[in-house]
Amino acid sequence: MQRTLTARDAFRRKTLWTALVVAAAAFILFPVIWMIGMMVKPTDIMFARPTEWLFVPTLEHFNYVFEQKFHHYLLTSVLLGLISTLLVVIIGTPAAYSFARFEMRGKDDLFLFVLASRMAPPVCLVIPYYLIFARIDLLDTFIGLTLAYMTFNLSFYIWVLRSFCRDLPAELEDAARLEGWSRVQIFRRIVLPLLRNGIVATSVLCFIFAWNEFLFAFMLGGKAVKTLPVAIPTLITTQGVRWGEMAVVGMVALAPVLIAVFFLQRHIVRGLTMGAVKG
């Protein structure tokens, strides 16, 4: 027998479940909150045992970060993310549309090829890349890293945007075709506007992946082209670890992610499952 629920019972239960989820979320996010505290925690009490919870905030760590020219690395990260994402959007959009809309010979194999280049462990790619780039002088250049980022971002973009393309009704394009529109017109005036949300969501994800990337940037860049994630371990110096500075840089590296999660919401699930789950 199921007990009949009164409105008050339902209210109580809802409150209870909400409290549970909020508590779990707070628990999960606690290290992030702690890192925010570390940004302004004076060095002399940082290593205190037992832990000091209350302190007067300081900006000393920010000063060091600026002295060490971390804003250059920030700029590099932004530029590299933007350039590689833009290129991916230009090359990938027609391919995603084509995969979604047309039947053709060898489609499955091509698609698997795209997936395989997404799934390949980056560390396996970095070895041949390093040797090739050393030979043709692409080490430590924007071009080199942009090419390397294509391996995971272009394939990712095609896969995920394809799932957005599949949601578009084909009837509109068929009608336009009957009206005598050209292929270019159909693509520009019908497909692209309808796909806008998908393109924006997917390319923001691509930007985040490029922004977060460490191994390629570390091995194939590092001096002239040094991104934020690569700059973080340099704060582990021979004189010790600069914890407060690490927290500052870590938080800067986290900032676009914080914006993106609120902006993308459910598209993230679709993206991270390669379009398999529609979020």
């Binding site: 979320a25 992030v32 973080i232 993230i268």
Partner: peptide
């Protein structure tokens, strides 16, 4: 709540 839960996953592994 949902966006907050995405934060760990979207974070750079290095962070």
């Amino acid at each position: 709540l949902i966006p907050f839960l995405f934060i760990p996953t979207m974070m750079a592994p290095i962070v």
